[in-house]
Simulated assay, not measured.
Amino acid sequence: MAKARDIQLDALRAVAVTLVLYAHFLAPNGTSFLGHLGVRLFFVLSGFLITRLLLDARDTNAFASGSALRSFYARRVIRIFPPYFAVLGLVWLTDLEQARSSLAWHALYLSNFWYALRNDWNPWLLCHFWSLSIEEQFYLAWPLIVLLAPRKRIEAITIGVICFSLAYRFYWPIAADPALARDLLPPASMDALACGALLAVRRARGADVPRWMRPCWPALAAFFLLVVWSDPGPASSTWEWPRWLLVQVLPLVPLTAIVAACSTGLGGWLGRLAEQRPLLSLGRISYGVYLYHPILLAYAVKAQPWIPLNVSEQGPGRFLVAGTATIIVASLSWAFFEKPLNGLKRYFPYVARPVASGDAKWTSRTAAALELPRTEARQ
């Protein structure tokens, strides 16, 4: 049976992907901050879960960095690649929205660089791949740090990554260039990923979130909402850049605090709410929902003449039709495609089992490291 902490992290995935669907299907006037917030929540979750998993493997007696790295990359390929490249294959076969010319960039997980270099969101139906590219770039580099760097230096490195990412943000007001690169290049998302990683590192040494974070995160969340709902003013206004910085930075503490709370298991009515079956089911298929939703929207728009509701514009019709189609396809994908492939992960344990069952090095913690948490299985 999965631990309560892992169940509630699935619920957070459901919240994150719902925010994205709202922003892309329903939000009026192109309002996108909730979608942005959902992606940032995904990043904090990924940073936390991946770092926790790698540290658990590293802290076992039977740990070997080479085999752990190989297993990590193999498991990521098994979990992420099949549905991702199935989508790319479909887009290539149909040249949906004339997206075929950019597929090489997406296939190499360089979508964020494609859109940043062009400073344009075309092809629009693959624009959400920028965040998947960020995650893959993180997966490529971060395990090398967690598994190979001196154990006592990992926390300092994580804090350094956060500081570097924040410094990157402060560069853009100086450059006065609102290009897409400010949001799409890897440093723009490393703060959220590293905040999750820092939480995992602190937990591994028996600590929790800093004491100052607990009382102040609701105030920061409220301030964030006030900033988002404020009038941005003209493009050249003095408020534009401070507002952008605050929208990027303010959610970090609240999102980290929320992940910290759910990773230990919320009690009371909030805990019961976070463990409702519909929420957990949506969290289980959240990768597929995120991956497929613009593709299904593109097909829905093409089928508009046969659909009685308006799916060509943001609104309830689009949310109902495209949202329902997305959940159905993601559910089928999970049940018949992704979940069976996930079974192959058992051939790639992070820590190899000893030949002799009575090996003195075989400890309960080693055994625990070999058991994949349910929440990681669905990443």
Rank of each mutant, 00 (worst) to 15 (best):
E313L: 13
D56L: 13
L147V: 06
T51C: 12
L282N: 06
P150K: 12
V87E: 05
L126A: 06
Y22K: 01
D208F: 09
A303D: 03
P28M: 07
T158I: 10
A4S: 13
G206F: 11
T51V: 12
F223I: 15
G288R: 06
A219P: 02
H106L: 01
A377N: 15
A330S: 14
L252W: 06
G343S: 09
P82Q: 08
P294Y: 01
R58F: 05
S357W: 12
G89M: 07
S46R: 08
G283N: 10
Q8G: 08
E275Y: 01
L88G: 03
G47V: 03
T51Y: 02
V17W: 04
A274I: 00
M190L: 15
G267P: 00
T375I: 14
E135N: 05
A57Q: 13
D95T: 06
L103C: 05
L21K: 01
W334N: 11
R79T: 05
N310P: 00
R52T: 14
D95H: 04
A4V: 15
F348W: 15
I80A: 09
A141Q: 07
Y347A: 11
T238D: 15
P278H: 05
R202E: 03
A257T: 04
I134M: 13
I285S: 05
T324N: 04
S189F: 11
A175M: 10
V249I: 15
F164D: 02
A68Y: 04
A68Q: 05
